[in-house]
């Protein structure tokens, strides 16, 4: 390849002599196509994501950083059945640069009384971690999250207390969920109101 690079250099010199001046510096291809620090790869990955998006009708999506940041967004779920009917839950999605090789990081921004979501917003959903495959996408995750609200699961708990109540006393669990969603204490923990619409 050295030969190749030499040829280029010679061509440049000849041109310089012919014109009696240094050639105008061409903006490099790199400068043309890339912004500093952004390889562009993220961008089209995000683009692919959005065009495939087919969200359940119980959800809406928002882009807090504007139309050009498709790698960070929020999905709001409003379950249309089950214990959490009437509630509104916001999830933050952080799509990593090497998505879909790695799953997006999903956190629940709304404090929720739920066996599979802890009070810090960590979500226990298999496809977000151990069962993530590059063929999955944002849709699958949103449907998965939706399922967590229609069918909370007491077998793989993140919130042990909530799971125990769901298992042993579903009636009390229901009461606790309503209380938390309306804004109030369950045990020692306070949950801000997260019901849809006005009080």
């Amino acid at each position: 390849m050295i030969k190749l690079f030499k040829q280029k250099e010679k061509q440049r010199e000849q041109a310089e002599n012919a014109h009696g001046r240094a050639p105008v510096k061409k903006q490099s291809a790199g400068e043309l196509r890339l912004h500093k620090g952004v390889s562009g790869v993220e961008q089209w990955r995000g683009l692919g994501n959005m065009s495939e998006l087919n969200l359940p009708k119980t959800s809406t999506i928002a882009f807090p950083n504007g139309k050009d940041d498709l790698m960070n967004f929020e999905v709001t779920l409003q379950p249309d059945e089950g214990y959490y009917l009437g509630g509104s839950f916001v999830f933050t999605f952080q799509v990593p640069p090497i998505y879909p090789h790695e799953a997006p990081k999903v956190k629940c921004k709304t404090k929720v009384y739920h066996p599979n979501i802890d009070l810090e917003g960590n979500v226990c959903l298999n496809i977000l971690r151990e069962d993530w495959k590059p063929v999955l996408n944002i849709n699958t995750i949103v449907y998965g999250l939706n399922l967590l609200f229609t069918q909370p699961n007491d077998e793989d708990p993140l919130n042990q207390d909530a799971a125990a109540v769901l298992r042993d006393n579903p009636k009390l669990f229901e009461t606790n969920v309503r209380r938390a969603m309306a804004g109030g204490y369950v045990g020692q923990f306070f949950f801000p109101r997260c019901m849809v619409g006005s009080k």
Binding site: W44, L47, S51, L53, F63, K67, D68
Partner: peptide, 24 residues
């Protein structure tokens, strides 16, 4: 069909979701 278009990190037109379609 129904293509969304991006250029150098700038989304020129997004067919979906509706919130992005409106913005572009």
């Amino acid at each position: 069909s129904k293509p969304s278009i991006t250029h150098r990190g700038n989304n020129l037109y997004m067919q979906a979701p509706p919130v992005l379609e409106e913005m572009t």
